[in-house]
């Protein structure tokens, strides 16, 4: 279980302070956790705080261990993190790029096990044929898949993914979500994924946390408990119709923005 306790963080710009979270408490259960919320709610900031890229007050516990002050190297062995930013140019090959995901364990000589893990991960994402290609030559979606492979190539306890499905086509989005589900079920790895696609979150996540625009938790629970027309109106400012399929999985169809009615 991944627990965030009394987490507070503010961005300091020149003379102004922009608080993002104030004493935020969140518990991410085992399995696939989706983090939802409108732009600027602090989803990416929360992942950066959990991973330790941003200095914040409060504590993050993983399996009872306080990981807040853990050394970078130890933390990287425990969790891997896919940031949202995109890198356009690099002369590294796809194989080298994905190998970097195993950085804490990489020696000067790349072991057969490292190579096997890289190729298995590329295979799982259906991009093994790109292994020897230069990263700079790939399309935006292929680059995204390479970075996802880089994040998944180790088997840490926790994986944090910031908007991994952005720039992926429909088939790749579906395959990625199925792969993430398989990883959580077969390997027991906890995954926290920031998503904007509520239907994907509803279908694949075990647990959903919704942040509102003030960085507070609006609701948390199973997709069935969390996704409602009221939540969509109050958090996203969208009127939407909510349907359930034969398995009870909710799906939404946005109708109009609340701003349009004002």
């Amino acid at each position: 279980m991944l627990t965030v306790k009394k987490l507070s963080f503010s961005y300091h710009c020149t003379k102004k302070t922009h608080p993002v979270f104030k004493e935020l408490d969140i518990t991410f259960s085992s399995g696939l956790n989706a983090l939802l919320g409108p732009n600027g709610a602090g989803k990416s900031t929360l992942l950066k705080c959990i991973f330790g890229l941003l200095r914040c007050s409060g504590a993050v516990f993983c399996g009872g261990r306080n990981i807040t002050r853990m050394k970078t190297n130890d933390k990287t062995k425990l969790m891997s993190y896919l940031p949202q930013m995109d890198i356009e140019m690099s002369s590294l090959t796809v194989l080298e790029m994905v190998l970097l995901g195993r950085l804490p364990e990489l020696g000067r000589r790349v072991s057969d096990e490292d190579l096997k893990n890289v190729m298995d991960t590329l295979d799982a994402l259906n991009i093994a044929q790109l292994a020897s290609r230069s990263f700079g030559e790939l399309s935006g979606g292929q680059k995204k898949l390479v970075f996802i492979a880089q994040t998944l190539v180790r088997e840490p306890e926790i994986i944090l993914l910031d908007e991994p499905v952005n720039s992926l086509d429909l088939q790749k989005q579906l395959e990625l979500c199925l792969l993430l589900r398989r990883i959580t079920e077969e390997k027991g790895i906890k995954i926290v994924v920031v998503l904007h696609d509520i239907n994907l979150a509803a279908r694949f996540a075990d647990h959903i946390v919704v942040l509102d625009e003030n960085g507070r938790i609006y609701s948390a629970g199973t997709p069935h408990e969390v996704i409602s027309e009221t939540m969509l109106r109050e958090v996203y400012g969208v009127e939407a119709s909510l349907n359930h399929d034969e398995n009870g999985i909710p799906s939404i169809s946005p109708i109009r923005s609340v701003r349009d009615q004002a």
Binding site: F51, L53, T72, N73, K75, T76, K77, S80, Y81, L82, P83, M85, I87, L100, G101, L103, P104, Q150
Partner: peptide, 9 residues
């Protein structure tokens, strides 16, 4: 940011 996310100080 990418390097830090890979565990590089």
């Amino acid at each position: 940011t990418k390097a830090r996310s890979l565990g590089v100080n």
